[in-house]
Simulated assay, not measured.
Amino acid sequence: MLEKMINKRVLKDVEKLSPHHQTSALESYNSVILRFAPKNVVFPFIGMLCRLYLSAIHFNDKADRPQATSASVPVFKVHFPKFK
């Protein structure tokens, strides 16, 4: 009985890890939007619309880039916020 409960929990965890439930792409896109249209600047409607279109074009253009490598080892950028 305990094995059945663990298996159900494991299956739920694996389901959450599947690529269909990942939010990293959405978070990346939101980061691109903030680069083109920061929240502390007020834009007119047409200006904001153009900036959103531009951010979507930029994100889609850069989405299929291969992983950066150095001596055939994948390179990752680690960001440490100053406030932590």
Rank of each mutant, 00 (worst) to 15 (best):
R65L: 15
P81S: 06
D13S: 11
F83K: 12
D64G: 14
F43Q: 08
F43W: 14
S18M: 03
S18P: 02
S70M: 10
Q22C: 09
N40S: 11
S31Q: 03
K84M: 12
P19E: 08
H21Y: 13
N40G: 07
E15P: 00
L26A: 03
L49F: 09
T69Y: 12
K39D: 13
P81L: 05
N7E: 15
M48A: 15
E27G: 02
D13W: 09
L26W: 03
M1D: 12
P38G: 04
E27V: 03
D13A: 14
F80A: 07
P44S: 13
F80R: 10
A63S: 15
I33S: 05
L34K: 10
L34Q: 13
A63P: 01
A25Q: 05
N40T: 09
R35N: 06
V10R: 03
F80Q: 05
L54E: 13
E15L: 11
V10K: 00
A25R: 01
A63N: 10
K82Q: 04
A37N: 07
I33V: 15
N30A: 01
G47C: 03
P38Q: 05
K8M: 12
K4N: 12
P38C: 07
I46F: 08
S28Y: 04
A63V: 14
R9I: 13
N30F: 02
V41F: 02
K8C: 07
S70D: 12
M48Q: 13
A37M: 15
S55A: 15
F59D: 01
F83A: 12
L52T: 03
K62Q: 14
V14S: 11
A25P: 03
S55K: 08
N7P: 00
L54M: 14
F59H: 01
S28I: 00
S31I: 05
D61L: 14
V41A: 00
R65E: 14
